[in-house]
Amino acid sequence: MNKRSRRKMLVVLVLFGVSVATVLGLTAFQENLLYFYSPAQIAAGEAPDSRSFRVGGLVVAGSVQREEGNLAVQFDLTDNTATVPVSYDGILPDLFREGQGIVAMGKIDSSGTFVAEEVLAKHDENYMPPEVADALKAAEQARRNESI
């Protein structure tokens, strides 16, 4: 092979590589375009029932129940429209707490409980010092008390 045809080969290879990468990327994209379903979508029967999928929502305050001696945990997940019970046996991310947004990967079992294999925390786009957050919370509390 002379130099020119080698170059041509290289160009073809590069184009091939880029298109394969793009197709792979887009396929992954297509499948996960909807990265997670909401509890309301599950309630409406839009989520797949045979394969595992992801569900995202807020951990209902006061719903987290831990079993003693192991990592098993149960909690309710809500999007303020519908609520789904979730069970999980594994290490939770640092940000997992009540009221926190999370995304869980798993399947719905026959009793309607979402059995998670993986739990990821989703944080919001707000950044503030702890004192500011506390002050905001206090102000919110005061407003609520006033309205009662």
Binding site: N32, P93, L95, F96, L120, A121
Partner: peptide
């Protein structure tokens, strides 16, 4: 923070 190095989200 999330609990994963990588996820295939958009």
């Amino acid at each position: 923070m999330w609990g994963a190095y990588w996820v295939w989200d958009a």
